[in-house]
């Protein structure tokens, strides 16, 4: 099943790509992306469901309750790079002709 790529998902994936090897906390992700917990967690859950995200509980020795941490899997990193570049292309506003591989110059010459 293909995963839906919303702008919020792209934002979150871009945040994960900032440091690919680091385990991230939910609140830090929320602060850095500006996503609310109610938006962030469903995305994280969906990523994990598609085996794009791995989760772990922090091991602490200070008696503080452990926190849940998140990191992209290899597949997740691949997916994230694709999604982020796709989102960037859309943001730049690549003309539809170029996306389709249509030669705009040849078209104008032929019609004029």
């Amino acid at each position: 099943m293909k995963m839906r790529r919303s702008p919020q998902t792209a934002l979150l994936l871009a945040e994960f790509l900032e440091d690919e090897k680091l385990w991230r906390y939910g609140y830090d992700l929320s602060r850095n992306t500006g996503l609310k917990s109610g938006t962030l967690y469903p995305i994280l859950m969906r990523l994990a469901e598609h085996h794009l995200l791995k989760t772990s509980w922090e091991t602490t020795e200070t008696g503080r309750p452990p926190r849940h941490m998140y990191k992209l899997t290899e597949d997740g990193l691949r997916h994230a790079r694709e999604a982020v570049s796709e989102a960037a292309a859309q943001a730049v506003g690549v003309p539809a002709f170029d996306i389709l591989g249509f030669d705009g110059a040849a078209f104008s010459e032929a019609t004029l």
Binding site: Y25, G26, Y27, S37, Y41, L44, M45, T55, P65, P66, R67, H68
Partner: peptide, 12 residues
């Protein structure tokens, strides 16, 4: 597990 993770974040 996810709810637990959210709750732990609220605490910190």
């Amino acid at each position: 597990e996810w709810a637990e993770g959210l709750a732990r974040e609220a605490a910190v």
